[in-house]
Each structure stands twice: as structure tokens, then as C-alpha cells.
Computed example of a mutant assay.
Amino acid sequence: MRHSDSPPDSASAPPPSPTQRSGRWRAPWPEEDRSFLDLLRWGLSRRPAPWPVKLPVAPCAPPPERVHGHSLRVTLVGHSTVLLQTGGANLLTDPVWSERTGPFGRGPRRVRAPGLELDALPSLDAVLVTHNHYDHLDLPTLAALARAHDPLFLVPPGDARLVRRAAPRARIRELHWWEQQELAGVRVHAAPARHWSARGLLDRRRSLWCSFVLEAACGPVVFFGDTGFGLGEPFGMIRERFGPARLALLPIGAYEPRWFMAPAHMDPDEAVRAVRILEAQHALALHHGVFQLTDEAHDDPASALDQALLRHGLKPGAFAAPDPGAAWTLD
């Protein structure tokens, strides 16, 4: 079954991949880069909604050591950090435990504490990092995870050198789109996303960005750290290659103002459209209510998500937006 949001079939063609031009990565579809003047315009015109200094978090109970068989255990730490346990493997996505996300220990301060303490994590097999922005690739957290767990770090091309600065002895593999890594009980694939990369002013697009798809007995699990929607290309390609998702983990925040954010960040309505393209059985909203990165209020994304679900005729429970600390098991 295909929805009207789905791109045309392209099963006979090889999957599109990004290319490097003069050392910078370009996606296989038209892109809209924002210029310094655009950034300046946003900075001079923005009227960000006020956010609370702190919001309460109900920490969850310690997760199990392992989850086997067809079960999938999901623990939302916060922002884009999720502990996924299935097939006997423990995987952590875009881990950020730092108080701030930015260079030199500055940048937006978290208003919600992590829903799980760092030392409460079970033994980790792999850490998945989608791109090098500070709210997704947090070097102090990666260094702590390397010391405590010695996991395999799966990162896009160009980011291994960055991770090694924090964890010189870490086990790291760079995955291009459509490459895969076998783990015990889980196969991890790097997949497309509509985004970009940079840690400073001069390294824009010098490293790649991606999403991830987990193949396991529980069914496909799709994780996006950051992505724009565009024409829905990444979601259509993933659906075509892996089938309907058992669970989709999708960002819904950091979307205002739309004129500036649309190429790189979905809004809640677009996230619902992505769920429909992926034909996901369950969906979990990420990337909202923890760090104030853009102009919407802290609770706007969840409220807009409820409205989008009504517009698209989906039940609210089909796409949940819980607070950090939420955990559940899909059997």
C-alpha cells in the first residue's frame, strides 16, 4: 500500500547516494542552503517564545540488561537520545548528557534532565551518531561511554576523526548511506536524511549525515536525528528498501521560523506525513522540549503533533510524544 505522500517507485534503480564536490557532501536531490545573511536576518528578526528554566523529569527505572526475541524495549533519555534493546543487542542513539550543547561548553542549556542516568545504562554494543551538530554529537558524553562500555561507534563519513579527539581508543566505523554493520541479533544500516553538517564556520558539509535503520526480529526500526521533509525522499527510499517500519523515531521540534528551518527540520505535520510514508506501526517523537534551539515554545511541538494527527486521521497513540524518562516494551 502506498500513500499519496509517497514518492514514485524506483525499485529498479540503485538507491541514490550523496556525492562529494570539492570536499563537501551534496545530497542526491535539490537542496536549499541558508546563507550567513539568512542567519543574520533570523537573528535580527526572531522573537523566540519564552521557555522555562527547568522542567521536572520523572526518571525511569533501570532498564533490563538485555531484551531477546521479538521484543523491543525503548527508553527515551531525551532530545534525540534513545536506548533501544532488541535481539540481545543494546544500542544508543545520538547520546547527549551534557548540560549545554555548543562549542566551548556554551550554547543552549537543557531544561529537562536526562530521563536515565549515564551510569544506569546497561552494557552497550553500539552507539549510533547521525551527524556532527553539537546537540547530536556530544564529545564529553562519547568519551564517558567509551570508557565505561567500549561500544562500537557508528558514524557518518568524516566524523571518526572528531570522535577520536574525545576517545582515542574507541572502536569506530564510518557508514555511508546504505552500508551496514552486523551486530549480534541486529543489523544496522545507515540511510538517507535531509540535513547538513558543521561544527564551526568553515567546515559546512565536510562530513556526511544520515539516518539509521535497524533490522531485527522485532521488525524494522527507523531513527532520524534531524531531517527536513522536502518531497519525502528519505522516507520513501527507506520504506521501499526495508518495508513497513515497526517503529519510527522522528524529530518534531526546532522548526520555527519555517522560512529558515524548513530545509533541515520537519514540523509536526511533516513528521506525521513521514510516518504515513514509512507505514510505521508505532512512532515516537524526538527532538523537542529539552533544548531551546529555535523560536517555538517548549510545548508547541507536542500540541501541533496532536492537531496534525487529527488532520491526517490517525489516532493520537499512533505517534507518541512522551517526556524524557518514558519507557515501554513492544512485544
Rank of each mutant, 00 (worst) to 15 (best):
L92P: 01
D267G: 08
A318R: 15
E179Q: 13
P103R: 15
T141W: 06
E65W: 03
R187F: 06
L84W: 02
H3V: 11
L249D: 00
L37I: 02
V186L: 00
R205H: 11
A320Y: 09
R21E: 13
R110D: 05
I238W: 06
S123G: 01
P8M: 06
V221H: 10
P8T: 11
T75S: 12
R26C: 15
E279C: 10
R46A: 07
K54Y: 02
T227F: 09
A120R: 09
E279S: 07
V221I: 05
A193N: 01
F223E: 14
D295L: 01
A217M: 13
S123V: 07
V213N: 09
A120N: 02
S4L: 13
E233L: 14
L76Q: 04
V221M: 03
L286Q: 00
A280Q: 02
P244W: 14
F229Q: 05
D38T: 07
R187T: 06
R112I: 08
L121F: 00
D159S: 12
F229M: 12
A58R: 15
P64H: 10
P322G: 10
A146V: 08
Y134M: 08
D159N: 09
A167S: 10
E65A: 13
Q307P: 04
L214S: 12
P56Q: 14
S22V: 05
L92C: 02
D306E: 13
T141H: 03
L145V: 01
V129G: 00
H176G: 13
P140N: 03
L72F: 01
H68L: 11
F36R: 15
L231K: 13
L39Q: 11
R147M: 11
G115S: 09
A217I: 06
D267A: 03
A167F: 00
E174K: 06
A58V: 14
L116M: 07
D269C: 11
M266P: 00
S123A: 04
A170K: 10
R311A: 10
E256W: 02
A302D: 11
I252S: 03
H189Y: 14
E270C: 03
R66V: 05
P301K: 13
V96H: 08
R21V: 11
T81H: 10
D203V: 04
R66E: 01
G317W: 02
A216Q: 04
R206Q: 15
L231F: 12
L249I: 06
L183C: 09
R2G: 02
R46W: 02
S10Q: 10
L44S: 02
S6G: 05
V290G: 03
F153R: 03
L250T: 04
L44H: 09
S22T: 01
W97G: 08
A245Q: 01
G219A: 02
G158H: 05
R246M: 08
A308S: 11
A248F: 10
A283N: 04
D267L: 13
K54R: 15
L250P: 01
H133E: 12
P122R: 06
L116R: 00
P8Q: 11
S35M: 07
H288C: 05
H136C: 15
A320C: 15
S12V: 10
A217P: 07
R311H: 14
D135C: 12
D203I: 05
P114Q: 13
T75V: 14
H133S: 12
V67S: 08
